[in-house]
Amino acid sequence: MPKAKETVLEIDLGALTHNFNYLKSKLQPSTKFLAVVKAFAYGSDSVEVAKHLQTLDVDYFAVAYASEGVVLRDAGITRPILVLHPLPTSFETIIERCLEPSLYNAKVLKEFIATAEAHNQSNYPVHIKFNTGLNRLGFWENDVDYIVSKLQETKSVIVKSIFSHLAASEDKNEVSFSNKQIESFKSTAKAFENKIGYKPWLHLCNTSGVINYPDAHLDLVRCGIGLYGFGNSAKEDESLRPVARLKSVISQIHKIEKDETVGYNRAYKSKGFEKTATIPIGHADGISRIYGNGNGFVFINGKKAPIIGNVCMDMVMVNITNIDCKEGDEVVVFDSGYKASDLAESAQTISYEILTAISQRVKRIIIAD
């Protein structure tokens, strides 16, 4: 593969195919697969990822906001798209673009029904979200009678699914809590089905739920981070392939003497004769200041080079004293060998954060399947 000549994010569709097939292998044939492509498909490219997954016959997509769904529709995505966090201001757009809203409280339920009626809709698909312990979005179990009463007053909408979200499905110390969530959801779902008079799809599992709670796969699973190569455990990571590879180049090499300083606020002081490399990527590109001052690192010619000083808006400086390299050499921030999860861990954060932070000004290169 050609070496990087500038800062680029390579998106490996072959890795995406592998991850999709691996996660599907965990499911029963009847369980549907929803691919979460919010936040630019976890910092990659939502259009290219969704197009590829559509060719793999994925059943559903999910985005956070209606605007993300509009981008997919404009790109020719025809599969159903669930909007996980719609706001009333987007309801008309949702209907115009055939998106499907999650309805999570009384306000959005009433306002979406009103919008659907105003647009003369009949049996428009909606998804009802229940809160079972994450305490973020969702109706409570004791809201079932209220929800059903509102739904039975109108012919404008029909419930395609009811769902909830596990709070700690990756944490082996929280198995008891996760099992309580699962039982709570099943109980709520049964009450809802009995009162509504038909059976919507049920879904609860995210990537870690797929891996750790096979009895809770139900009718559909929602996979996000696993599709992009991370299984929330070292063991599962071995079975997955990172889709995104962030690379750059050495712009300039400096030789500095003892006690010379590097970068803003003179945050790094040389301990002796040292060599530093300046790389054209900074906090405006997604490499946060938390990675500065030795917390983060890159790889040059297979060797780790710690970030020194404060991360600049457009550049970082790294220590290359013991690395044989030259200006123009490729720099790997993360790839399939040097994983984003390792870099994230160095700054006490998670792979989700560094992946989704990669700026849209970073050039995307699509690597075909």
Rank of each mutant, 00 (worst) to 15 (best):
A234Q: 09
S288H: 13
F163I: 01
K186N: 14
L34Y: 01
S233L: 02
P86W: 00
D324K: 12
N131E: 00
E183Y: 10
P200D: 04
K32V: 08
G76R: 04
E236V: 13
L246A: 06
N105Q: 04
L56A: 02
E48Y: 02
I95K: 01
K304A: 09
A277W: 07
R136F: 09
T7Y: 08
G302L: 10
L9W: 04
K172W: 12
A216R: 03
I323V: 01
A216H: 04
V8Q: 05
K363L: 12
I300D: 03
F139A: 00
A106N: 08
L204D: 01
S90H: 07
C325F: 11
M313I: 14
S233P: 04
A168I: 09
S351F: 05
F334N: 02
E238D: 11
S270N: 05
S102L: 04
F112P: 03
A277M: 08
S25V: 12
S248C: 08
V298W: 12
L23Q: 08
V108E: 01
K24M: 10
G328L: 07
D74Y: 13
N265P: 08
E260S: 14
V249S: 06
H85M: 11
A62D: 01
I147T: 01
G282D: 03
K255N: 14
M313W: 14
K129C: 05
I366L: 04
N21P: 12
L246M: 07
D59N: 09
T78Q: 13
V37M: 02
K271L: 13
R361M: 10
G133A: 03
V126D: 00
F192C: 01
G337E: 14
D145Q: 12
N319G: 00
N123R: 11
E174C: 04
L204W: 04
R241Q: 06
S149C: 08
S164I: 07
D143S: 11
F299M: 14
A357V: 15
A344V: 06
P200T: 13
G302F: 11
I320Y: 00
L134T: 12
G263P: 11
V333Q: 07
T278Q: 13
N322T: 10
V333E: 02
L204N: 02
K258W: 10
N135P: 09
T89S: 15
I290C: 08
V311G: 00
F192I: 06
Y268R: 07
E257G: 10
N19Y: 14
R266I: 04
Q152V: 14
N301G: 08
S122L: 12
G14E: 06
L9Y: 02
L343P: 10
E68W: 08
V83G: 00
K235M: 09
E6P: 05
A62R: 09
E174A: 11
S90Q: 08
P88C: 04
N179T: 11
I323S: 00
L23D: 04
